[in-house]
Computed example of a mutant assay.
Amino acid sequence: MRTLTLTPNYFALDQSLDRFFTLVLAAALPHSGATPDALVVAEERQEIAAARGGDDDAFRRIVQRYQSTIATQMQRFSRDPTVVEELVHDVFVEAFVSLNAFRHRSPFEHWLRKIAVRVGYRLWKTQARDRQRRDALLSEPTLQAALQTPCQTASDANDRLHMVLEMMSHRDRLVLTLLYWDDCTVAEAAELAGWTQTMVKVQAHRARKKLKRLLEEINIEETNHDA
């Protein structure tokens, strides 16, 4: 009878076969051979499916998993913690509403971060539009002299404008907000406020005069105080 000689190559072959069967078993029993990342992906798929079906707890777990990541990303759009918190909230609201549009073609985190970029960019656009509207009001010829005092910056003028607006009546603030902040036409402002167009024009004229008077009074008080 021929004796089988166990050479190093034989042991190498034996180890390869052992590895092969290990991989086969891992494929047959996914949980036994799955990596942690694969487990997270599988769990995430289940949570997404459950959230689509109305499971609030499943979506809450998704939020908890990515909240820190999204918060870090939104800090690039604002340094104000309150604003960042609102942005993070908006990102997950949009994600929840759009959840059925996610097709698993890319990692869920990438999809979520794209939403975050849109939300952050929208904030910047809104802030830029608000600055333009404030500048439009600040550039009113009847208000420029009242707003400008020696050594006053544009930021100071803007702060002063907001302070004075808070001193005005609701009707005055409403008409100025609609025409300058919301960039409405007279017709649009009339429809939103429930007024006639003539009333909007009259109220806006009175509001601008009142705003100018209040600003002048504040300037006089500050001048007397400094003297």
Rank of each mutant, 00 (worst) to 15 (best):
residue 111 W to P: 02
residue 53 G to E: 02
residue 111 W to N: 03
residue 42 A to E: 15
residue 221 E to F: 10
residue 215 L to I: 02
residue 66 Y to G: 03
residue 217 E to L: 09
residue 31 H to P: 05
residue 188 E to N: 01
residue 130 D to Y: 03
residue 69 T to N: 10
residue 107 P to N: 03
residue 214 L to Y: 13
residue 198 T to E: 13
residue 119 V to A: 00
residue 216 E to V: 03
residue 170 H to W: 06
residue 11 F to T: 09
residue 193 A to W: 03
residue 73 Q to R: 14
residue 210 K to T: 15
residue 51 A to N: 00
residue 194 G to D: 05
residue 165 L to S: 07
residue 129 R to W: 08
residue 113 R to H: 02
residue 76 R to C: 08
residue 52 R to Y: 04
residue 104 H to G: 07
residue 112 L to W: 01
residue 163 M to Y: 11
residue 100 N to I: 00
residue 3 T to S: 10
residue 129 R to H: 10
residue 172 D to Y: 13
residue 216 E to Y: 02
residue 215 L to E: 00
residue 12 A to K: 13
residue 96 F to R: 15
residue 185 T to Y: 01
residue 154 A to P: 05
residue 21 F to L: 13
residue 147 L to P: 06
residue 144 Q to L: 11
residue 6 L to G: 01
residue 43 E to S: 13
residue 204 A to K: 05
residue 20 F to E: 12
residue 93 V to C: 03
residue 220 I to H: 12
residue 64 Q to D: 14
residue 42 A to R: 12
residue 51 A to M: 01
residue 136 A to S: 15
residue 30 P to F: 02
residue 171 R to T: 11
residue 76 R to I: 01
residue 9 N to S: 12
residue 209 K to V: 15
residue 145 A to P: 04
residue 35 T to F: 09
residue 68 S to Y: 10
residue 121 Y to G: 14
residue 36 P to W: 08
residue 106 S to N: 05
residue 123 L to T: 01
residue 186 V to N: 06
residue 211 L to P: 04
residue 89 H to R: 13
residue 207 A to K: 00
residue 207 A to C: 03
residue 169 S to A: 06
residue 92 F to C: 06
residue 124 W to F: 11
residue 69 T to D: 15
residue 124 W to P: 08
residue 185 T to E: 06
residue 176 L to M: 01
residue 31 H to L: 12
residue 220 I to C: 04
residue 124 W to Q: 11
residue 160 R to I: 08
residue 221 E to W: 08
residue 196 T to W: 09
residue 185 T to L: 03
residue 62 I to R: 02
residue 140 E to M: 04
residue 170 H to N: 09
residue 211 L to N: 02
residue 13 L to M: 12
